[in-house]
Simulated scan of single mutants.
Amino acid sequence: MTPSISGHTALAGVLGNPVHHSLSPAMHNAALEELGLDWVYLALPAAADQLEAVLRGLEAVDCRGLNVTLPHKQAVAGLCRTLSPLAERLGAVNTLVRHPQGGWRGDNTDVAGFLAPLRAGGRDWQGKRAVVLGCGGSARAVVAALVELGCGSIELAGRNAAKQEALLASCRCWAPQLEALTWQPQTTQPCQSTGLESALAEASLVVNTTPVGMASASDPGAASRCPLSPVELEALPPQSCVYDLIYTPRPTALLAAAAARGCEALDGLEMLVQQGAAALRQWSGIDAVPVAAMRAAALAQLSPPGTGP
């Protein structure tokens, strides 16, 4: 039963552009109902040139907390009164908490969200080798998480040399184990060996941070694509873990191929749930937030009625 909204109902939400597709409202409203909090969580579209005005307005109406998604994670960091040490290091914010002296405190719960399923699996990642595909904003949070996990070697494979070098330069002071890999376009010569192929063959953990393989209404073939070529997929050790930040479709082409090789396959849905739960703990001051209800609500949004889980 959906709780009624009254003049006493408090507001929380997610800022992005576009943001209509977000699963966060379903997740958070399920949690708020179970906690008995008279709050409502909304998707709040915000244009880049209006972001500062939107934040001031939401503070003025006593908004209890905000998530931030693309494309505002970096821009919003410059609009915060203070930043957590992690958000300052990453230069990216995905969670805003009201500052007691006015304005917002910026934090980043993407790292905690990413780590949750890896830690839940019980494997020891200390000293292990990891390969990260892509060099966008998500890759920075993943690298920070892998450092926290204790990985001894982190290799970054990017096709944009300038972006790759910029990311390496900004992370070297706190990720000394981070190195660059050359990632060539997919080859039509299956016998050709590449630096990435060799790295994959020695990896314990492979993380895809690129959008390749994400379902798209405007591109029917997008979901069938894989960021790795057939020869690169063949290099994956069966005992490795492959983690794709994408969760639509489930499984992605990458994870289906990895599972067929006997790899452990993780998608990004649990990361989404856990980063949201971490944010809700900060806004509400309640540690025991209903993660199971958040996960079930997200899955229900991904699975239309009658299609099963």
Rank of each mutant, 00 (worst) to 15 (best):
P230G: 07
Q164I: 02
V14C: 10
V206S: 06
V142W: 13
D124G: 13
P238F: 08
G7A: 13
L83V: 07
R105H: 14
Q282G: 01
W125R: 03
T95L: 11
A265N: 00
G65H: 02
L86N: 08
S22P: 05
L15C: 04
V147E: 10
A169H: 05
G113Y: 03
R56P: 00
G150L: 06
E155M: 08
P237I: 10
R98K: 14
P71N: 13
S84N: 00
L178F: 04
A141V: 04
D287H: 08
V143S: 05
S218I: 04
G195F: 04
A259Y: 00
R225Q: 15
H21G: 02
A166H: 04
G137S: 01
P304T: 07
G136Y: 10
T209V: 14
L133P: 11
A87H: 05
P185I: 14
V61D: 01
Y243G: 10
G103K: 03
A279P: 06
P3N: 09
A297D: 02
C171F: 13
P45W: 03
A75L: 13
G134Y: 07
N29H: 09
A47Q: 14
S216N: 15
A141D: 07
A298H: 05
Q184F: 11
L115K: 13
P237F: 10
D244I: 12
L200E: 06
A157E: 00
F114K: 12
V242P: 04
N108V: 00
A48M: 12
N94E: 04
E33M: 11
L269Y: 08
W174A: 00
G7H: 03
H72E: 09
D38P: 07
L118Y: 07
T307H: 12
V147M: 09
W174K: 01
E270N: 13
L115T: 08
C63R: 03
P309N: 06
S84Y: 01
A141M: 11
V14I: 15
L266G: 12
Q74W: 03
V147L: 09
D287W: 04
L167K: 02
T188V: 14
T187Q: 11
Y41S: 11
Y247H: 09
I286D: 01
S224R: 15
V54D: 10
G276N: 11
C135F: 00
M294Y: 00
N17G: 00
V61S: 09
L255D: 01
R89G: 03
G113M: 08
D62Y: 10
G113A: 11
P249K: 07
A235Q: 06
L42N: 10
L181Y: 08
L178S: 00
L70C: 09
G91V: 06
G221S: 15
I154F: 06
A296Q: 14
H20I: 00
V97Q: 05
W283C: 04
L70W: 11
C263Q: 10
A141W: 05
R105F: 08
A31H: 01
L86T: 13
R159V: 04
R281Y: 06
A293K: 12
A215G: 08
E202K: 15
R172Q: 15
T188Y: 02
A296I: 01
L42G: 02
L254A: 10
V54W: 08
A112W: 03
G213E: 03
Q189Y: 14
T210M: 05
A166C: 05
P25T: 05
A256S: 13
A292H: 12
E165H: 13
A92S: 15
